[in-house]
Nucleic acid binder design. Sequence first.
RNA 1: GACUGAUUAGCUCAGCAGGUAGAGCAUCUGCCUUUUAAGCAGAGGGUCCGGAGUUCGAACCUCCGAUCAGUCACCA
Length: 576
Amino acid sequence: MIDLNLSEQERSRRDSLKKLTDLGINPYPAESFFTNISSREILESFDDEKPEKLKDLSLAGRVMSRRIMGSASFAELQDEKGRVQLYFRRDDICPGDDKTMYNTVFKKLLDIGDIIGVKGYAFRTKMGEVSVHVTSFELLSKSIHPLPVVKQKDDKKYDAFTDPDQRYRNRSVDLIVNPHVRKVFEKRTQMTNSMRQFLNEKSFMEVETPVLQPLYGGAAAKPFKTHHNKLDQTLYLRIANELYLKRLIVGGFNAVYEFAKDFRNEGMGRFHNPEFTQMELYVAYRDYLWMMELVEAMVEKIAIDLHGDTKVKVGDHTIDFKRPWKRYTMFEAIEKFNGIDISEMDEQALKETAGKLGVDVDNSMGKGKIIDEIFGETVEKKLVQPTFIMDYPVEMSPLAKKHRTKDGLVERFEAVCNGKEICNAYTELNDPVDQRQRFEEQLLLAKRGDEEAMMLDEEFIKAIEVGMPPTAGLGIGVDRLAMIMTNSHSIQDVIFFPQMKQEAKQEVDAPEAFVELGIPESWVPVVQKAGFLTTDELKAQNPNKVHQLLCGMNKKHKLGLKNPTQDDVKAWVEGA
RNA sequence: GACUGAUUAGCUCAGCAGGUAGAGCAUCUGCCUUUUAAGCAGAGGGUCCGGAGUUCGAACCUCCGAUCAGUCACCA
């Protein structure tokens, strides 16, 4: 019985699968296949003077193309490191009289996408390409779902697999056929390795803190809410890990960091995924000025590790991460870009200024939020080269320490790059009395309608009441930084499996429901393929039309079923 | 959430003013002992996103819905 839901190609591959089994070949063998070289190593180490140095090779990978010419053939094998061409000759693969392995297994039953292991030796073809002359091969895994075939000539791609929706939903395939996608993720991992190395060399300790939290805090954002059954208690997925890392500082660790998946129940877009990665770092006995130097040094190192240079191409810009970066206070930055000094303004004057600058404000916004809006609208987008913005209004920063000299401000900085914030850092607030007051001010903001105002966390306050050393803290948006370092336009390009809307599932009745109407079992798939997925849908149809449709399908797909009579179909439809 | 656009074969895309679908690659059948987006000859493959409407007739026109993309708004 033909499965009508499969394409012709999928059916053909399932056929091959069966034929292989019939030949006694296990399409999914269990044994290890040991390789001793990669495609890249072959290409790099081949020596025309001494080709015999590359013999007794064993390599494995995926067949990505085949060019068959009678008793000799070429194929391309793709492994983790790249591709190498394979040369198959019938009489080498099958030295004896039995040519099955070449004529049948290789030529007929092997498909693009299959994973094979080969043994052979390296040589250079007449066309000048270093290749592997295969002496034997074995199937390691059969692919029964066809792969998009991307061809390439002179750097020009043909039929590239480009639809973003398909690519994100089907990342495995994306990674197989789009090597540039794979490179982005290699770079991302190189980046986090580089950060870990930088921090570990300074003897900072990598730690883990809870993702499920009874109270969410440490940032201004809306959370995902969940429930623990046994405790019968509401839990939130963390929006930040700040409050837990600070507890570790209280506990006596002097420098801790965590690569944390955080979750925010907010909009999605080019710069936003509901789950994203942040690296937070806390160091005792340090302040935000010290932290600025650390950020510069770390990001400069990342650029050099990834690109061998402090300059990185991002879109139309070249961004230079060479130290030192420019530094402005927030008021200086606003004055520089707008020519207006807002440092002495009260809430009313700020509102009017915002209006003049075309920045939207509403009544839920306090003084700090208005300043932040003005900055975000008129300055941030224009900062391309890495720049530190320092000294934020206290209202916006309930976890940061008040500025040592400037009233109404806190010791906080953000680094802005390519028009976007890449990190956020404070001299941390360690005064428990002030901390409690700040939380209470947040509660007032919440009452004014600010949905993202922070919650009061008694447990956290209790911890810093014990005494937290003066501390500098930092959060870096790992995805955002990865976007810059890999020149990616969208956050979805640096996250393996970005959040996607679920494809709507069609309602389908079980085959038994159709059989109950008197429809023979063999006809049920045909009825469903014809578009009648539920018995209710069938009920709404004109029986004659259904009859014609079904008989047509039988003929078209050569199903060889005995056609029902018009009366049969009428009975099915009316019974439904 | 708003606006604009997209959705046709496994993949990339055509389809001009409404007359029930085309190409290249992939697949299948032949031929070919060093090819390279291999070539040559032949074949099969499509609820034209879903639904309703207008019409003698819809991939194409109208309306509703789904999904995606881009831009904007909120947020890292």
